[in-house]
């Protein structure tokens, strides 16, 4: 064995090929099956997709690096289930390009934070966390409420995700900008279109408390309020397990 190696190390290309082979095996064995084995991801026939406003909020979540402090993955441990709700299933993030499971909990898990607090609490908290939780160490995001949301590019965002396999319809892609505005303005002209395309259960509200302009705060709160509510399979399987 050492004799062979003594010869191998005289050939740089040979060495390079051997390195690539040795370093490929593990990844191939562990990753390739995840795309082919059907049990990897549970089925959730009635799962809905993010609305354009929620998607914009998700992109703000990414932009601000909320994932550096917050996980979105409840592990199968009893104290986590008690604290945060039913453990996360793979299917719940099947439309998440990229996933935001996170690796550090400086703040609590957010996988099921949707509807835990009112819109008002959420926007106050983001605006200045210490006004509602005096000992919080979360940064203040005062600029969100002051910044108007850029909605013009949203059709392109939905189109890109559609190409990656997220089941957006052509009508959803076409109307993305208007739907974003409509979801934050319940009495406005576009609100009904949002309900028609994404379902009656969709939250159509003035998330930041002001129906006038669509701000980044609207988008982020809309996203937070839908976390854990795209499908209820996790609750269903918990009920099944309880029996």
């Amino acid at each position: 064995m050492f004799g062979t190696h003594y010869k191998l190390e005289r050939y740089s290309i040979g060495l390079a090929v051997a390195i690539i082979v040795a370093a490929s095996i593990g990844g191939l064995v562990e990753i390739a099956p995840l795309f082919t084995i059907h049990e990897t991801v549970e089925r959730a026939p009635h799962m809905r997709v993010y609305t354009p406003l929620e998607l914009a909020g998700r992109n703000i979540y990414i932009r601000e690096g909320c994932y550096a402090c917050h996980s979105q993955m409840i592990r199968t441990l009893s104290d986590e289930v008690e604290r945060y709700g039913p453990y996360s299933l793979a299917v719940e993030s099947q439309y998440d390009h990229p996933m935001l499971w996170g690796s550090k909990r400086t703040g609590p898990d957010l996988a099921r934070v949707g509807e835990k607090y009112s819109d008002l609490w959420q926007s106050e908290h983001l605006n200045n966390p210490r006004s509602v939780v005096p000992q919080s160490i979360m940064p203040a995001y005062g600029f969100l409420k002051r910044t108007e949301l850029r909605t013009t590019d949203l059709p392109k965002d939905l189109a890109a995700l559609k190409r990656l396999g997220v089941p957006y319809t052509d009508a959803m892609v076409r109307n993305a900008s208007d739907d974003a505005k409509g979801q934050a303005d319940p009495d406005g002209a576009w609100a009904d279109g949002v309900r028609a395309r994404y379902g009656d259960a969709t939250h159509v509200r003035a998330f930041d408390g002001d129906a006038g302009t669509v701000t980044e705060m609207d988008a982020l709160v809309a996203y937070l309020q839908v976390l854990g509510h795209l499908t209820d399979v996790a609750h269903a399987s918990e009920a099944g397990a309880g029996k």
């Binding site: 562990e30 795309f35 099947q94």
Partner: peptide
């Protein structure tokens, strides 16, 4: 990639 595959 998305979800669990993306995580892996």
């Amino acid at each position: 990639f998305s979800g669990v595959q993306d995580a892996m």
